[in-house]
Design a binder for these strands. Structure first.
Length: 765
DNA sequence: AGCACGCCGACT
DNA sequence: GTCGGCGTGCTC
């Protein structure tokens, strides 16, 4: 008999034990259930939970470990392995690619309730057991029993008749309990058996949703020829079982989602599974409804709104194969979908696809790797494909697909750029240009709706003393406090958007004590106030982080606007997402420049994406829409391109810039960040990291920027210093960077410092 | 991360 | 003489 060694990732969160430990597998254990399962292992005089990462036959003992001395595994903790081989391989990839520990990689794949020691399923577990009757005799026996039943045995006859149609029926169907006499009689006669089933809490929701959609008998929308062409190309790729990547460039309203749905339909029919990733904020009931009404409980939903129990249930439904379509936010890329054939990343350009905690992965890269492991297709969909996606296409790693027109044949709204300098010159200092004010008046008169976009919440960006010129900074972060108004009429407070610090707005300047504080920079609250003055009869809603903090507030606001209980919606980026309001015919962007002023190499890309998305909110139904973009830089190429819906012009320009100055996608950026309460330690750690790197010659084509204060020197009372490395290829720099990182990491940990390494970092300012 | 081992100060 | 400080090092 063959004996096995299990290589286990132990549940110890420390970089120094980031390796697998080998244990002898007891002879009588079932090997096929072991790989990917949790196990209990002896480890330094303790018992720990670990994850079986791989198995090797005993005669191929791992290097450096003598087989004879191995301790045996103590216990197997899962009956169905949590992690399938493709997920185990993906965890390895993530550890390598993003400098995370094996444990971190494995644990981000699992719902929190399935990490570490299995917990006793409490009553909050979400899965409620419910009783079912299962047929346990032949149909002829049931027929016999049915015909010989006494005339007044209504229940018995009803149940027997139903059991002849369905093999298994929940007692809930007849609204009876297991103690019901007719049930007892069936059991005694051996015609049926009682069993308990676990019913995930969400299932009821799915069934309801599927039912309500079916009863409304919406027929499937007819595909446009562009949609058909796209679908045909995808189907063709599906026929060959190998990994392929597609970039789907579809203008706002072009019906990308319908393409996803039709394609998934094909895949599911062929017994395959799919993962659909959507930015958290776009995971609206509307969006979910589209999937659930089409696929019912084959869909498993994975988003942050679920309780831990619900998320575990959804995950297990996929793992057991009861569901085969995972719809969710970023982390759903790790959903245990069997026979995975497709990963859709909708709104692929969104920054939320980058995880900002370790493992700091880029979902698009992970999707490509997962698809490679499973021979699946990746579909990156966007109205404004990222430079990353375009680069995949240009280098032959992906194929372009496009939906250049709106599905309903409506034209994209005309966009007009308004020169705010001109307004100023003519003595108009209002936040609304004359053109926007007029358009707003007309739109209100037509009883149509308007959306105003402004990328800053609060009342004003900051409070400044007009006497001494000082602003008010957060005591814990190196940033100006933002002015907020409390409630509708309440007083003003200053708030830090980084650490949450808040204090009443001072009347006197904290620096010079003069009564000369004045707000600068426009926030959504102030816009709301101004508009209420200008249009006292208009019904106005404001939507930003502050007005949607309450659970369900987000949906309530959108519902209100959708049902036309408001004329005007003022909001931050959260209103830019794929919301479909047919009666919106005017969209105003109040200050397009504020987007451009972010010190980040991607700020122009982000500006173009946001302007395009916001503009896409107008005129989605029969009525034509118009878009007004206010700016002090009317000639800026990003703004001009967005106003003209000229993706290609934007792309060519931006591509050239990135190439010229060597920014992603033409290189990759890793950012080392050290933070400490004392500035000299943070600075010292960054300098030490730099010196460690310099001890070895840098690989070809690598640029190392010396230690410098991070974009915000201080956050939450900790000083931050960084080192930025630009390189063409991670594989060639990994060992070099990791050794430097590990050296500094250990030293820093001992003095309560924190070091992070963000591979494929975005922000580097 | 824990936990043991290990070498120097004030106490029943 | 012992109890205990937390520095260093190891865990299959």
């Amino acid at each position: 008999m063959r004996r096995w060694i299990a290589n286990v990732v132990v549940n110890v969160a420390a970089r120094v034990v980031d390796k697998t430990f080998s244990y002898a597998v007891p002879d009588d254990w079932e090997i096929h259930r072991l790989l990917g399962s949790r196990v209990l292992v002896p480890f330094a005089n303790r018992k720990l939970v670990g994850y079986v990462q791989s198995l090797t036959p005993v005669d191929v003992s791992p290097p450096g470990v003598s087989t004879v001395e191995l301790k045996p595994l103590l216990e197997m903790l899962d009956s169905l392995p949590l992690l399938t081989p493709d997920l185990l391989a993906l965890a390895e990839f993530i550890s390598y690619r993003y400098a995370a520990t094996r444990l971190q990689s494995i644990e981000t794949m699992l719902p929190s309730l399935l990490r570490g020691m299995p917990r006793q399923k409490g009553k909050d577990s979400g899965a409620k057991a419910y009783p079912v009757l299962v047929r346990s005799a032949s149909l002829s026996e049931l027929q016999q029993a049915l015909s010989s039943a006494r005339a007044n045995a209504h229940w018995l006859k009803k149940i027997l008749a139903d059991l002849m149609v369905d093999e298994e029926i929940a007692l809930a169907k007849w609204a009876i309990t297991p103690s019901h006499s007719s049930v007892q009689q069936l059991l005694e006669r051996g015609l049926a058996q009682m069993q308990w089933r676990e019913k995930p809490r969400l299932q009821a929701f799915y069934e309801e949703l599927a039912l309500s959609s079916k009863t409304s008998t919406k027929s499937l929308p007819e595909l446009t020829s562009a949609q058909q062409r796209t679908l045909a190309q995808l189907s063709q790729a599906l026929a060959v079982k190998e990994s392929k990547t597609f970039v789907l460039h579809g203008v706002t309203g072009s019906g990308k989602t319908e393409v996803y749905l039709r394609f998934i339909e094909q895949i599911v029919k062929a017994g395959g599974g799919a993962i659909v990733l959507v930015p958290e904020i776009a995971l609206t009931p509307q969006m979910v409804e589209k999937f659930v009404s089409r696929f019912g409980s084959k869909v498993a939903l994975l988003h942050s709104g679920l309780s831990d129990g619900e998320r575990r249930d959804e995950w297990m439904r996929l793992r057991r194969g009861e569901a085969c379509i995972a719809v969710g936010a970023r982390s759903a890329i790790f959903a245990p979908v069997a026979n995975l054939r497709l990963v859709v990343i909708d709104e692929e350009h969104e920054p939320t696809y980058k995880q900002e905690e370790s493992p700091r992965y880029d979902t698009r890269q992970v999707a490509l790797e997962r698809a490679r492991l499973c021979q699946a297709i990746v579909l990156l969909g966007s109205a404004t494909p990222s430079l990353y996606a375009m680069n995949l296409a240009e280098t032959g790693k992906a194929r372009m697909l496009s939906l250049p027109q709106r599905a309903n044949g409506r034209p994209l709204p005309t966009a007009q750029i308004i020169d705010m300098r001109e307004e100023l010159r003519n003595g108009h200092t209002s936040i609304l240009s004359r053109a926007l004010q007029e358009a707003l008046t007309e739109t209100l008169a037509r009883r149509e709706q308007t959306i105003l976009f402004l990328n800053r919440r609060g009342y004003a960006s900051f409070l400044l003393c007009r006497h001494c010129g000082e602003g008010v900074e957060c005591p814990r972060c190196s940033i100006h406090l933002t002015l907020h108004r409390q409630g509708q009429t309440g007083g003003f407070r200053l708030t830090c958007h980084y650490c949450g610090y808040s204090t009443p707005a001072p009347e006197r300047c904290p620096a010079c004590a003069e009564v000369a504080m004045r707000p600068y920079g426009l926030g959504t609250q102030q816009v709301e106030d101004t508009l209420k003055e200008l249009f006292p009869t208009a019904r106005i809603l404001r939507m930003d982080v502050d007005s949607t903090r309450r659970k369900g507030a987000h949906k309530d606001l959108l519902d209100k606007f959708m049902h036309q209980e408001a004329d005007l919606l003022i909001g931050t980026q959260m209103i830019a997402k794929g919301l479909d309001f047919p009666n919106v015919t005017l969209v105003g962007v109040l200050n397009a420049d504020s987007l451009l002023m972010v010190p980040d190499y991607r700020s122009e890309e982000r500006t173009f994406q946001l302007l395009t998305q916001v503009a896409g909110r107008a005129g989605r139904a029969e009525k034509p829409g118009s878009v007004l973009i206010q700016t002090y830089r009317p000639e800026h190429h990003t703004i001009v391109a967005a106003a003209r819906h000229d993706y290609n012009a934007f792309y060519q320009y931006e591509r050239y810039q990135r190439l010229q100055y060597r920014y992603p996608p033409f290189c990759e950026i890793a950012a080392f960040l050290a933070s400490h309460q004392e500035e000299r330690y943070a600075k010292g750690a960054a300098e030490r990291f730099f010196r460690e790197l310099m001890r070895h010659p840098a690989p070809d084509g690598v640029v190392v920027l010396p230690a410098s204060p991070a974009g915000l020197l201080r956050v939450e009372d900790r000083y931050r210093y960084q080192v930025v490395v630009k390189y063409p290829e991670w594989n060639n720099v990994r060992d070099w960077i990791i050794q430097a990182f590990d050296t500094v990491y250990e030293r820093m940990r001992k003095i309560q410092g924190v070091c992070i390494l963000d591979v494929s970092a975005g922000r580097i300012g």
